[in-house]
Simulated assay, not measured.
Amino acid sequence: MMMVQMSGARRILEIGTLGGYSAQYMAKGLPDDGIMLTLEKDPHVAEVAQHNIE
């Protein structure tokens, strides 16, 4: 989250979501109009990550 804020990122692409926890913290660092896109190849892992993020 701190790196996102320090860099002034407005868009994030995460490849390999796993549990979704890093995606949550990176998204918290984005401005209100920021965009977070995360990709996961394994459907089961993507389902777990989606549940955790929700």
Rank of each mutant, 00 (worst) to 15 (best):
G34Y: 05
G34M: 04
G34A: 04
T17R: 02
M36G: 08
I15Y: 05
K28R: 14
L18R: 13
Y21V: 07
I12L: 12
L18A: 14
N52Q: 05
S7D: 02
G34H: 04
S22V: 06
G8A: 03
R10L: 07
P43I: 03
M1E: 09
A27L: 08
V45L: 09
E40D: 09
D32F: 09
Q24P: 01
E54L: 13
E40R: 07
G16N: 00
T38G: 00
D33N: 13
A46E: 02
L18P: 05
A49Q: 06
Y25E: 10
H51F: 13
P31Q: 10
R10D: 05
K28C: 08
S22R: 08
R11H: 12
E47T: 15
M1P: 08
Y25F: 12
P43A: 00
Y25L: 12
I53D: 04
H51G: 06
Q50V: 08
V4N: 00
Q24R: 14
P43T: 00
I12V: 15
G16Q: 01
Q5D: 05
E14F: 05
M1K: 13
V48R: 13
V4Q: 00
P43Y: 00
S22H: 10
M26A: 07
L37S: 12
D32L: 13
K28I: 02
M26R: 06
G19P: 08
V4Y: 00
A46K: 09
L30C: 04
D33M: 01
D33G: 01
V48T: 14
L18Q: 10
A46Y: 05
L39A: 14
M3H: 09
T38H: 03
V45M: 13
G8V: 05
Y21Q: 03
I15L: 15
V4P: 00
M26F: 14
